[in-house]
């Protein structure tokens, strides 16, 4: 395998602290709204679909489909940036790892995995071929 790009640690906020704490336990949390029933991404205190404050964290198995993907060639380490649509509905920006950069494509089924981040930051959610 070629050397992978090192991921900077994410800044967190009070709103997202539970996400990163769970990530350190290997759990992938998303936010859903008990008012309109829809999940959203990225996690917020208020539902972006209906503005309700009744959102709750739920654990997701992290299964999804690539909505779009681009392989960055002009970089020290080639990497793939993508949008993945989760089974729960929302589409999230992510990286695709452990894949053949010449073959990775829209419509591919993918599975969540984690990558360590710099400076002892929390693991970051990325996806690999399912």
């Amino acid at each position: 395998m070629a050397k992978e790009r090192s991921i900077p640690a994410p800044m967190s906020s009070p709103e997202t602290e539970p996400f990163w704490a769970a990530a350190r336990q290997g759990k992938f949390l998303i936010k859903t709204c008990t008012s309109c029933g829809k999940a959203h991404w990225y996690p917020r205190a208020c539902c972006p679909h209906c503005m309700s404050e009744t959102t709750e964290w739920v654990e997701s198995p992290g299964r999804g489909t690539i909505y779009s993907v681009s392989v960055m060639k002009r970089a020290p380490e080639v990497y793939a940036i993508a949008y993945v649509t989760l089974e729960e509905g929302p589409t999230m920006m992510t990286n695709i790892v452990e894949c053949d950069f010449d073959k990775v494509a829209i419509g591919d089924k993918v599975q969540l995995t984690w990558r360590p981040t710099q400076d002892d930051g929390p693991p970051y959610p990325v996806f690999k071929p399912a």
Partner: peptide
């Protein structure tokens, strides 16, 4: 910006953000 923690670590440059639009 609240979006930054969900974007910057992924290596969003200018060109690959537009490239995802082109791919789609």
């Amino acid at each position: 910006a609240p979006d930054t923690q969900w974007e910057f670590p992924l290596g969003v440059a200018t060109v690959n953000a537009y490239a995802m639009v082109a791919a789609r």
